[in-house]
Design a protein around this nucleic acid. Sequence first.
DNA 1: CAGTATCCGATTGGATACTG
DNA 2: CAGTATCCAATCGGATACTG
Lengths: 140, 140
Amino acid sequence: MFVPAGSEDMKASIAVKEASAGDEHDHEACRALGQILDRVGDKWTVMAVGALSKGPLRFNALMRTIGGVSHRMLTLTLRGLERDGLVTRTAYPTIPPKVEYELTPLGRSLIEPLRVLSGWAIENRPAIELSRAAFDRAGE
Amino acid sequence: MFVPAGSEDMKASIAVKEASAGDEHDHEACRALGQILDRVGDKWTVMAVGALSKGPLRFNALMRTIGGVSHRMLTLTLRGLERDGLVTRTAYPTIPPKVEYELTPLGRSLIEPLRVLSGWAIENRPAIELSRAAFDRAGE
DNA sequence: CAGTATCCGATTGGATACTG
DNA sequence: CAGTATCCAATCGGATACTG
């Protein structure tokens, strides 16, 4: 299974041990997955990576491409990605200023896993929506 | 790229059109990915799916296996997964009550994409942590 | 153009207590 | 044992206004 990024390390470890006889993708996978979902699961990170997957973009171009993101959140999102080594930020000291963002190799390596997930999403969204509708109908 | 699940459909559509000449995983992929990340990117959903990937579990077993999740949040998480057709809930009207949760075929089909992502996470977490440390050091 | 700061409403999620 | 309801602190994220 996948263990949380949270604080209960010891308790969780024991629980996992108990429950996981014969499991190969345990524990470490869980914590790691929890962590990147914390990183990537926010409102705009994946959009930013997706927008940059086609090549470098300037701040405002990125903002228009993503659509619906506030100035503030895009800045914060990019700062986080830069911190984690997924994008580079290159500022040209011209007037007016010009700043380009580009995926690093590490950032590009994330595209494929995300594409797998989006493939699943596209394929299964209809089923999910049907299930939701049925569930909500059942609840009157 | 990957379009947001938000409200700016038309604007985003136009922006994407402009920016995406020659892109194959566009638009629909973006919205779909945004949506499942909203579904799966919360604090506990992935943990629950991971815990159930080995077989059905009762509520409290699930709680112990995941570790660190509150009673309330596990209930909400499972309700969401049930609504989306990713898990089934089976209540045995015994005393004391016994409720089993189990992944549906749809839920199981999500495991593989998640494993791809967790593979990426395991492989690249060290690089990310180094980058973070360097970034934070640079900021004094 | 890019980035920062402030404000504030909305959402998240834990603790707790109560029900069948 | 499983689920629900209430309360509340913390975080998230949009709007706005200001700086180089």
